[in-house]
């Protein structure tokens, strides 16, 4: 065996575990979902068999008003929540990047929301937005019980509530990624800028932001992908209601498969979620690739 061949063989062996992992836990389920989505499978009616129906589920999906509303809700959720998460993440990162007394404690405590499991934090926010004993009502109206509002019963506020809960939880994660980017910016650039008489804002816009772009893009990628998968918040806080105002794609797919037993149709919804996030992530990866390796 030539050393070159041995080296290739060795590299294959090294890659194999990761490759198998991706194959079994990512590739296979995706292909299988796609296969299921081409069939009509109704668990409650085994007598129907599992006929191959081609694109029928997808055609139905495009005409399903509830699904289209869920697509709209999902995109709105992704845009609004990632926007605020990156914004707050940047602010938090800038603060904890500065040197001040007790920075260690502040850095640690900023991460607390991120460490709480989403199911727990969703339950917590459900209490906070509760119409009878919720903190939000108390903050706004104090003891004036008759003015208390049922936030989660209102289509608009219920949507705002899940966005707030998501932003609260995951801004810290964005901050962490952005902080790493900040720390990679060499100090002497700022020194030089100061010598040249640049003010704080100038330094921020001319040095920090451009050099932070890769970190921002990565944070954006992670947050967008994660936001597309939103499920637990909706499951705990609103169950998609009131009147479908918080129904998102993942929750709709879950309902179709697990509550209604519509395996084929539900799989089509899952494939749609996959396709959307795939396209978006490809777009990000290309952008990041260009910026980073130019």
């Amino acid at each position: 065996m030539t050393p070159a061949r041995r080296e290739r063989l060795f590299s294959v062996v090294l890659i194999l575990p990761a490759f198998l992992f991706v194959l079994i836990f990512a590739f296979f389920p995706i292909v299988h979902s796609f296969w299921l989505s081409l069939h009509r499978i109704v668990l409650g009616l085994p007598g129907l068999g599992e006929p191959f129906v081609g694109a029928e589920n997808y055609i139905e999906l495009l005409n399903d008003r509830v699904a289209l509303r869920a697509v709209k809700n999902t995109f709105l959720f992704v845009f609004v929540s990632t926007f605020f998460e990156i914004l707050f993440g940047l602010l938090i990162a800038l603060v904890i990047h500065e040197r001040f007394k007790g920075r260690g404690i502040v850095r640690a405590s900023v991460l607390v929301p991120w460490a709480v499991p989403t199911v727990v934090s969703s339950q917590m926010w459900r209490f906070i937005f509760n119409d009878k004993y919720g903190l939000i009502n108390f903050l706004f109206f104090g003891g004036d019980v008759n003015a208390y509002r049922a936030w989660l019963a209102d289509p608009v506020y219920a949507f705002v509530a899940i966005v707030v809960a998501d932003v609260w939880k995951t801004s810290a994660f964005a901050a962490l990624l952005i902080l790493a980017g900040l720390q990679a910016i060499p100090e002497d650039l700022y020194e030089a800028a100061k010598v040249d008489g640049a003010g704080w804002w100038q330094r921020f816009f001319k040095i920090t932001l451009p050099l932070l772009r890769p970190a921002l893009l990565i944070a954006l990628l992670f947050r967008t992908m994660d936001a597309f998968r939103v499920f637990d918040l909706v499951f705990v806080m609103t169950q998609g209601g009131p009147a479908d105002s918080t129904n998102v794609l993942q929750f709709y797919g879950y309902k179709k498969i697990f509550a209604e037993g519509m395996m084929g149709y539900g799989s089509a919804v899952s494939v749609l979620v996959f396709l959307i996030s795939f396209v978006v992530s490809m777009f990000y990866v290309r952008m990041i690739g260009k910026r980073m390796f130019r």
Binding site: D131, K132, R149, A150, D154, T238, P242
Partner: peptide, 14 residues
């Protein structure tokens, strides 16, 4: 109250 739109059995009984 409008809040009943978010109530299951336990909340309404409360």
């Amino acid at each position: 109250p409008r809040g009943v739109l978010t109530y299951q059995e336990p909340e309404s009984l409360d």
